[in-house]
Write a protein that binds this DNA or RNA. Structure first.
Length: 253
DNA sequence: ATGGCTTCATAGTGAAGA
């Protein structure tokens, strides 16, 4: 079972890239973040023509998550239960016996901002919910834009970024909390090229200079076997790309 | 250099992203 995640930074703008990528890669599941699309405008028809069911939880301008699946999806849940939040950042569904959870973790803006405090409380609520979710669904994959680079090797300039949002200690501790639930960063289960990243700033020719961060991740529960995880840089080279690339993992349900 | 691009909501700029 091929599962994948991609922060598309506007599904409306990136729909041609997404359709091409689905045709070329044929994932069983693709989780999307930053769709920036209200549910009424979600392009379910054209994705259906491409062979994918879609469930989605979106809003105007910001955020928005979706799960595309070749097979039927069950038990769809939007948001973190019990955590009141206007922002559409979480969508869960069961596909072929695997619990798929699509997340768009808050960016946090800067470590002294209200948005950073929101990010940390959001992560606390996520972890508490996942603990229960793992009991209900031992085979679970948590895919999305984590807005956390787990380690210094996931950062092109660790010294320059030290203490910054996306790499700060409280954020990394929150990430470790997810690992303590038994979730594993699938990318690090395998030998990988050095300086592997999933996001590059649009400015400063950051992609060409490989000034990136690895913040788009697929975490896998221990009951789920994982045989590969790769970052696909190809869509980042296209005209008008998303600033994020897809990440793909192969799991056996 | 707190910018540099890109998107969205707007109708000239501003917010937000990471």
């Amino acid at each position: 079972m091929k599962i994948s995640t991609w922060n598309v930074n506007s599904l409306k703008v990136r729909l041609p890239h997404v359709l091409d990528w689905l045709v070329a890669n044929q994932p069983d599941v693709l989780c999307l973040q930053e769709t920036k699309t209200e549910d009424a405008n979600f392009p379910a028809d054209v994705l259906g023509e491409a062979g994918y069911h879609a469930v989605f939880s979106g809003q105007k301008t910001y955020n928005g998550v979706a799960i595309l699946s070749k097979g039927p999806v069950q038990d769809v849940v939007a948001g973190i239960p019990g955590f009141a939040d206007e922002q559409k950042r979480v969508l869960a569904a069961t596909v072929d016996g695997v619990r798929i959870i699509c997340i768009y973790v808050p960016n946090g803006q800067s470590v002294d901002s209200d948005k950073y405090r929101y990010k940390l409380s959001w992560l606390t609520a996520l972890q508490a919910w996942l603990k229960e979710e793992l009991e209900r669904y031992p085979k679970l994959a948590l895919l999305g834009d984590y807005n956390i680079a787990p380690e210094d090797r996931d950062v092109y300039d660790p010294e320059g970024w030290k203490g910054n949002v996306l790499v700060s200690e409280p954020e990394r501790n929150a990430f470790c909390g997810l690992e303590q639930l038994g979730l594993r960063d699938s990318f690090r289960l395998f030998e990988q090229p050095e300086k592997s990243y999933s996001w590059w700033d649009y400015r400063m020719m950051a992609f060409r200079r490989n000034m990136g961060l690895r913040i788009d991740l697929i975490l896998i529960s221990q009951a789920l076997q994982c045989t590969s995880c790769t970052i696909d840089k190809a869509p980042r080279k296209l005209e008008r790309p998303s600033d994020h690339t897809p990440v793909v993992a192969e799991v056996t349900p």
